[in-house]
Design a protein around this nucleic acid. Structure first.
Length: 569
RNA sequence: GCGCCACUAGCUCAACGGAUAGAGUACCUGACUACGAAUCAGUAGGUUGCGCGUUCGAAUCGCGCGUGGCGCACCA
């Protein structure tokens, strides 16, 4: 599809040749109010070199520039306001979407480049709770966005399947657990043992030492501990898979922390050989004071490993295995310091590719009565949230008497879509408090609103018997698209690919979410203001094509968020 | 104490250093005899936490302060 900004930049450059096309393009903006043009070029920066007042420059440009794609040029103060020929614009977007179809919004920016996205990474033997939704859903969307940008993407679920917590679990199971319980309700039982452990550890601190010892034995490969750990791991994984299936999420690799346990000695040797390791209070550390950071603890005084050690091993392993161009870690902002230390250590080890590793943090989800905590059982299970959302959707469908023969599937699409959409609607860095009425709200800027818009467009196209395959594009007369609402919709569709690129650059799925909302809102206004199934065949054909383009854009946008778009709901 | 992050309408949030700071929600009001009312439209709502600076121009950049969150050695 033709890049209008680039076209404008070329035309401006031909008149004032003091900036590069890229610089001009970066200066071109989109006015908030479309009465000030489809695009605008502020002339302040030219003033110095041209020795003229900005408004004068703008006026001269408005006078001087001529091109077929311009309907009108105006100058308001220092701005050159550019109005694109509507017919040209609408034709451009409609044919662009038709040509691209399912891949409208995609590009080849990342062709030939490999990206790893690490996300979700729940702790085995703990329930999958609402706090895990962020990494899971944000990471999944980032992977989809990078894929759309043409990158070769590898999805890794770095399971939290190792560490002292398993020592705790083993101790707790031995003391208070039973084979019987574990068989019947594996996750709930494991959670109760974990909670019990922390209750008891409050009274008896020696339990913590016992847990560390149990983990040390696990790390040494002792049979009994290993068997228990494997048991816990298998039970948890099958539970996680159930939730991933509901969300429609999968991974290329489930190599968690335990996978790297046998790769750590080599890392330790390397750190030692490079003179980075230092003993302190019986533990091995890397001193980072000169970089303004607390020292990083590499191994505990009992010799067992820590999180950061495994992350170092994992990064090196991944570089060797995948030779990535970029490795994206979608992990909570609480771990900012950890990632700063970790990346600094990789740098100190002499790995230039350390800068290709990026931590993408996100804010905290808390409960109204405090931080979410597995230890004291104050959690909301993600599966319960998804089920409730589906249930509520089903009630609404039945109430509205929707014409669909697959109520359950639609309810699942919309209910789960609502939860995902809600999660991806805001900037990922924002903290928020979990509230049932918020996650179950289907009015306003929500997933169901966007999906409804898609279904509505589908309905009009269905009623008209519109078939894009049989449409002769040349026969469509876009001069029938005259309304302001139609034109605003066309502009938003045109800009969808730019939103995808920006979302990728900023690792920010909400950029796509918001753009999809904008398209949906514009379509609804268009739908309301104008009669699509017009008497005049030519008018109808043009409007149907625009509707089809809107529907396709919404569908593609939702797909990048990991949400399906129903034909009816 | 030190570090990182956040702070915009009653609430939840937008806004490539650019024009009169925008949506949703809640309150009030209007529109289903055209294609789906899970919709659309209107009224009202602001000293962008505070101060100083940089700039032709600051919600946005810098410095200082305030409030809140998170982190800071054997958890992950």
């Amino acid at each position: 599809m033709i890049q209008i900004k680039n076209e404008i930049a070329k035309i401006i450059k031909s008149a004032v040749d003091i900036l590069s096309i890229e610089e001009i393009e970066a200066m071109i903006e989109i006015p908030q109010d479309s009465s000030m043009g489809d695009y605008a070029f502020p002339c302040f920066k030219l003033a110095g070199q041209l020795h003229k007042a900005p408004p004068l420059i703008a006026a001269e440009l408005a006078e001087k520039l001529k091109a077929d794609i311009f309907a009108k040029l105006e100058n308001v103060n220092a701005y050159l306001n550019i109005f694109i020929d509507k017919k040209y614009f609408v034709k451009l977007i409609s044919s662009g979407v038709v040509a691209a179809g399912e891949s409208f919004g995609n590009s080849d920016l990342g062709a030939g480049r490999k990206v790893i996205v690490e996300y979700s990474a729940p702790n085995i033997a703990k329930p999958f709770h609402i706090g895990h939704i962020r990494s899971t859903v944000i990471g999944n969307s980032i992977h989809l966005i990078y894929k759309a940008l043409g990158y070769d993407v590898v999805r890794i679920n770095h399971l939290g399947d190792y560490g002292t917590q398993f020592g705790k679990m083993i101790v707790a199971y031995r003391r208070w657990g039973s084979e019987e319980e574990l068989k019947q309700e594996p996750i709930k039982s494991l959670l109760s043992y974990y909670v019990k452990f922390h209750e008891e550890a409050e009274k008896d601190a020696s339990l913590e030492d016992e847990a560390r010892a149990a983990f040390a034995r696990l790390e040494h490969g002792e049979k009994e501990e290993t068997e228990l750990w494997q048991r816990f791991r298998a039970e948890s994984l099958s539970e996680f898979r159930r939730v991933y299936d509901m969300l429609g999420i999968s991974f290329d690799s489930y190599t968690g922390e335990s996978f790297y346990s046998d790769k750590m000695p080599a890392v330790l040797d390397e750190l030692r050989a490079k003179g980075l390791l230092k003993e302190s209070q019986g533990a091995q550390i890397v001193e980072l004071e000169e970089f303004g950071m607390a020292p990083a603890l590499i191994t505990k005084s009992d010799g067992s490993s820590l999180y950061i050690t495994r992350d170092l091993a994992a990064a090196i392993y991944r570089k060797n295995t995948y030779d990535f161009d970029k490795c994206i870690y979608v992990v909570a902002s609480q771990q900012n310091l950890h990632f700063q230390q970790w990346i600094k250590i990789l740098e100190l080890m002499g790995y230039g590719w350390a800068t290709d590793c990026v931590h993408i943090p996100f804010g905290l989800i808390s409960m109204a009565d405090g931080t979410m905590s597995t230890r004291n059982g104050r959690v909301v299970f993600l599966e319960d949230v998804l089920n409730k959302a589906v249930e509520k959707t089903k009630e609404i469908i039945l109430e509205k008497n929707v014409n669909t023969d697959c109520i359950d599937e639609t309810a699942s699409m919309v209910g789960i879509g609502a939860v995902i959409f809600n999660e991806l609607a805001n900037s990922r860095i924002k903290d928020y408090v979990f509230k049932w009425d918020k996650v179950l709200n289907f009015d306003g800027e929500t997933g169901p609103y966007v999906q409804y818009t898609h279904a509505r467009a589908a309905s009009v196209l269905r009623n008209a018997g519109f078939d894009i395959e049989k449409l002769d594009l040349e026969s469509v007369d876009f001069s029938y698209i005259t309304g302001e609402a139609a034109y605003e919709l066309a502009k938003l569709i045109y800009r969808f690919p730019e939103a995808v690129i920006r979302a990728g650059e900023e690792y920010e799925p909400s950029v796509v979410t918001r753009h999809v909302i904008e398209i949906a809102r514009a379509f609804n206004k268009f739908y309301h203001d104008e009669h699509i199934l017009a008497e005049d065949e030519n008018e109808k054909r043009a409007k149907l094509l625009l509707s089809w383009a809107a529907k396709q854009s919404i569908k593609n946008g939702l797909a990048l968020l990991g949400i399906r778009a129903p034909e009816r709901m």
